[in-house]
Write a protein that binds this DNA or RNA. Structure first.
Ligand SMILES: NC(=O)c1ccc[n+]([C@@H]2O[C@H](COP(=O)([O-])OP(=O)(O)OC[C@H]3O[C@@H](n4cnc5c(N)ncnc54)[C@H](O)[C@@H]3O)[C@@H](O)[C@H]2O)c1
Ligand SMILES: NC(=O)c1ccc[n+]([C@@H]2O[C@H](COP(=O)([O-])OP(=O)(O)OC[C@H]3O[C@@H](n4cnc5c(N)ncnc54)[C@H](O)[C@@H]3O)[C@@H](O)[C@H]2O)c1
Lengths: 217, 217
DNA sequence: TATACATTGTTAAAAAATTCACTATGCACC
DNA sequence: GGTGCATAGTGAATTTTTTAACAATGTATA
């Protein structure tokens, strides 16, 4: 298998690859062994060329005239994305959302292991959720250094997100996923990703309105 | 103010407008009255032209030589997106994530009011969370019709998402936000949006790996 | 072994999105 | 009222992403 071409890979490609992995897993469970780009595209809601193109950034994984072997393709994609390993993750802010994420099974299944959780609320410190004991945020930087944690999840209120980020950065973290609806600043070498599903609600609301307007025309 | 031009609006624009609203709110709280596209761009992490272009889809909201009045712009964007009203929302699947969302304050603040929640687990039916009583899913279609609900949120396990969607569709819903990691099929006139933050973790992991590879070169 | 067939990998074309560069215009100050 | 300045709005240029088209190639079959 050839190495990843040195070419910038579109963000959108990464997101789609994640979807492909998802759907391939479902197919695997259904006992499907081989799949064509066309069928996979169909179930992922994208164009077949798109799939082939996305995969081409990383190598050749298919067999012409046949398609892709489901298991192999899934493994190949995971490897391409750097997911053929586990990533240690810490969480800052154990509120409603933080708890839900701590209890979420799929994270571990996908290779993201939450190894520690931090909060600044004395009432929450010491509590155990899904086998993780909540610790005082002040311990964060040292802990992440000690445990070699690479990814931090922020689930504090928005006005505390920057502070949480600072702790993480101090702790030598390499990437942050921020669930709080606020922008944070971090050094260049720290990867920051924002999650905000209000966007999706906005989008749905907007599209419903548009549909209705179009309906009137 | 002129009407929205009849032109297809990029999905990405909608997502960015949501970010602008967010940042404008923060600025408003800080007492900032006027903002230039350049400064707003800076705090939203985008290009100033991008902001002006995004806004141009909907009208002219600024004052040349001055900038945008923060309050007015925020209102204008919300109106453009169809968010100058409240939207009734129902939730299907009251597990870890469903609970977190029910307790989430920001949804209501942004105009999305969860008016009912449904689950199929008899142990959960009757429970009250954040003032909402969990009802049996079988009541869903009739309830949504009766209450004139337009948006449904799916937070069931992935293998149940399609069933949940079917209930919603039967209930005459116009848009669905699916938090379960599985594709669903719905009629053309129903807007479907997928939320999956595993994508963001994938993306962070991938980018960390890339950074490291680049570092070695 | 040759032939037909299916489906990939890849190149080219098209479409979409972003950024740039400039024009128009409102405000402040003289 | 005129002048200078700042910044929005906009059309053109650029870049990126998606889609289409097709050549390359592995498999099955006779
Ligand atoms: N609840 C949801 O479903 C939901 C959905 C989308 C986004 N969000 C966002 O996620 C964030 C968390 O939401 P939530 O509902 O869990 O809020 P929450 O108030 O329940 O939890 C926030 C937690 O962060 C802790 N905290 C505050 N400052 C901290 C600090 N400096 N260090 C460590 N911990 C700190 C608090 O003690 C609290 O436990 C918010 O920004 C919210 O907007 C939540
Ligand atoms: N927990 C998280 O933080 C998190 C994060 C991202 C995505 N998700 C996804 O969100 C979904 C829910 O996650 P969760 O952790 O809350 O799971 P969960 O198991 O805690 O909750 C699922 C709920 O759905 C109910 N349910 C099942 N089938 C139903 C049906 N047909 N009609 C109505 N209700 C039904 C169950 O009774 C249960 O209460 C899953 O698909 C999960 O992958 C969860």
């Amino acid at each position: 298998m050839h190495l990843q071409k040195y070419e910038k890979i579109p963000r959108a490609t990464i997101a789609r690859l994640a979807v492909y992995v998802q759907e391939l897993e479902v197919m695997e469970q259904q006992g499907i062994k081989v799949i064509s780009s066309e069928k996979l595209a169909w179930s992922c809601g994208v164009n077949p060329s798109q799939i082939r193109k996305d995969l081409a950034y990383f190598g050749e994984f298919g067999v012409r005239g046949v398609g892709y072997y489901v298991y192999e393709l899934r493994e190949a994609i995971k490897q391409s994305l750097g997911l053929d390993r586990t990533w240690n993750v810490v969480m800052v802010g154990v509120g409603n959302l933080g708890r839900a994420l701590l209890r979420h099974q799929l994270l571990r299944k996908r290779g993201f292991v939450i190894v520690a959780a931090f909060d600044c609320d004395p009432f929450k410190i010491g509590e155990e959720i899904a086998g993780i004991e909540v610790q005082c945020s002040s311990k964060l930087p040292q802990s992440t250094i000690d445990m070699g944690v690479e990814i931090g999840i922020i689930t504090t209120p928005p006005e505390r997100a920057q502070r949480a980020a600072n702790y993480l950065i101090e702790g030598g973290i390499k990437g942050i996923v921020n669930f709080a609806p606020s922008r944070i600043t971090a050094p260049e070498n720290v990867v920051v990703e924002y999650v905000d599903f209000i966007h999706n609600l906005f989008s749905v609301a907007f599209n419903i309105t548009q549909h209705q307007i179009k309906g009137l025309l």
